Lab assay of single mutants.
Amino acid sequence: GATAVSEWTEYKTADGKTLYYNNRTLESTWEKPQELK
């Protein structure tokens, strides 16, 4: 079967924080998503 690919993209901001963006739900979060833990 196909492996579930994470929908989350990780961005590094200018101040060194990490922003997570979900390509499916168009949601963005500063918290690390469950799927990435």
Rank of each mutant, 00 (worst) to 15 (best):
G1D: 12
G1N: 13
G1K: 10
G1L: 14
G1T: 14
G1Y: 14
G1P: 13
G1M: 13
G1A: 14
A2G: 13
A2F: 13
A2P: 14
A2S: 14
A2N: 12
A2E: 12
A2W: 11
A2D: 12
A2I: 13
A2R: 08
A2M: 14
A2H: 12
T3P: 12
T3V: 14
T3K: 07
T3W: 10
T3R: 07
T3Q: 12
T3S: 14
T3M: 12
T3D: 12
T3L: 11
A4K: 09
A4Q: 13
A4V: 14
A4L: 13
A4N: 14
A4P: 12
A4E: 13
A4Y: 09
A4W: 12
A4I: 13
V5M: 13
V5N: 13
V5A: 14
V5R: 08
V5P: 12
V5L: 13
V5Q: 13
V5G: 12
V5T: 14
V5H: 12
S6V: 08
S6K: 08
S6L: 09
S6Q: 11
S6P: 11
S6F: 08
S6W: 09
S6R: 08
S6G: 11
E7Y: 08
E7V: 07
E7L: 06
E7K: 03
E7Q: 06
E7I: 07
E7H: 07
E7F: 07
E7P: 06
W8A: 00
W8V: 01
W8G: 00
T9V: 14
T9M: 11
T9L: 09
T9P: 00
T9K: 06
T9N: 04
E10F: 08
E10Q: 09
E10R: 04
E10W: 13
E10H: 04
E10Y: 07
E10A: 11
E10L: 09
E10K: 04
E10C: 15
E10N: 02
E10V: 13
E10M: 10
Y11C: 15
Y11D: 01
Y11W: 09
Y11Q: 06
Y11T: 07
Y11N: 03
Y11S: 04
Y11V: 13
Y11E: 03
K12C: 12
K12T: 13
K12L: 11
K12I: 13
K12P: 04
K12V: 13
K12A: 07
K12Y: 10
K12E: 07
K12M: 10
K12N: 06
T13Q: 10
T13I: 05
T13R: 04
T13N: 07
T13G: 07
T13H: 05
T13F: 14
T13W: 06
T13P: 00
A14P: 13
A14L: 10
A14F: 06
A14V: 11
A14Y: 05
A14R: 09
A14Q: 10
A14I: 11
A14T: 10
D15K: 04
D15I: 03
D15V: 03
D15Q: 05
D15M: 05
D15L: 05
D15A: 05
D15F: 05
D15T: 08
D15S: 10
D15E: 08
G16S: 01
G16I: 00
G16D: 03
G16W: 01
G16F: 00
G16M: 02
G16V: 00
G16R: 01
K17H: 07
K17I: 04
K17M: 06
K17S: 06
K17T: 08
K17Y: 07
K17D: 04
K17L: 07
K17V: 05
T18E: 02
T18A: 03
T18Y: 07
T18M: 04
T18G: 01
T18V: 12
T18P: 03
T18S: 07
L19N: 03
L19S: 03
L19M: 13
L19V: 11
L19K: 09
L19A: 07
L19G: 06
L19W: 15
L19R: 08
L19I: 14
L19H: 05
Y20F: 05
Y20M: 00
Y20H: 00
Y20I: 00
Y20V: 00
Y20R: 00
Y20A: 00
Y20S: 00
Y20P: 00
Y20K: 00
Y21S: 03
Y21C: 12
Y21H: 06
Y21P: 00
Y21N: 01
Y21A: 02
Y21W: 10
Y21E: 03
Y21G: 01
Y21V: 14
Y21L: 08
N22L: 02
N22E: 01
N22V: 01
N22W: 02
N22H: 03
N22I: 00
N22S: 02
N22Q: 01
N23F: 09
N23A: 08
N23Q: 10
N23M: 09
N23W: 14
N23Y: 08
N23E: 08
R24N: 09
R24G: 04
R24S: 07
R24M: 10
R24L: 13
R24P: 02
T25G: 01
T25V: 02
T25P: 00
T25D: 02
T25R: 01
T25N: 02
T25A: 01
T25W: 02
L26I: 02
L26W: 08
L26M: 15
L26P: 01
L26R: 11
L26Y: 13
L26F: 15
L26Q: 15
L26K: 15
L26A: 12
L26N: 15
E27N: 04
E27P: 00
E27D: 04
E27Q: 10
E27C: 15
E27L: 06
E27K: 07
E27S: 04
E27G: 03
S28M: 15
S28R: 09
S28T: 15
S28Q: 10
S28K: 11
S28D: 03
S28W: 15
S28F: 15
S28Y: 15
S28H: 12
T29K: 05
T29A: 05
T29D: 02
T29R: 10
T29W: 04
T29P: 01
T29H: 06
T29S: 10
T29N: 03
T29L: 05
W30Q: 06
W30D: 09
W30M: 10
W30K: 05
W30E: 11
W30A: 09
W30G: 05
W30P: 07
E31Q: 08
E31W: 04
E31C: 14
E31F: 06
E31V: 11
E31G: 03
E31P: 02
E31Y: 06
E31K: 05
K32A: 06
K32D: 04
K32W: 03
K32N: 05
K32C: 15
K32Q: 08
K32R: 11
K32M: 12
K32S: 04
P33M: 02
P33T: 02
P33Y: 02
P33E: 01
P33W: 02
P33H: 02
P33I: 02
P33V: 02
Q34L: 14
Q34R: 08
Q34A: 15
Q34M: 12
Q34G: 10
Q34W: 11
Q34T: 13
Q34S: 12
Q34E: 15
E35V: 08
E35G: 09
E35S: 10
E35N: 09
E35M: 07
E35F: 08
E35L: 06
E35H: 07
E35R: 03
L36W: 08
L36N: 06
L36K: 06
L36C: 08
L36V: 06
L36M: 10
L36I: 08
L36A: 05
L36H: 07
K37A: 12
K37F: 13
K37W: 14
K37G: 14
K37D: 14
K37H: 12
K37T: 12
K37P: 08
K37M: 15
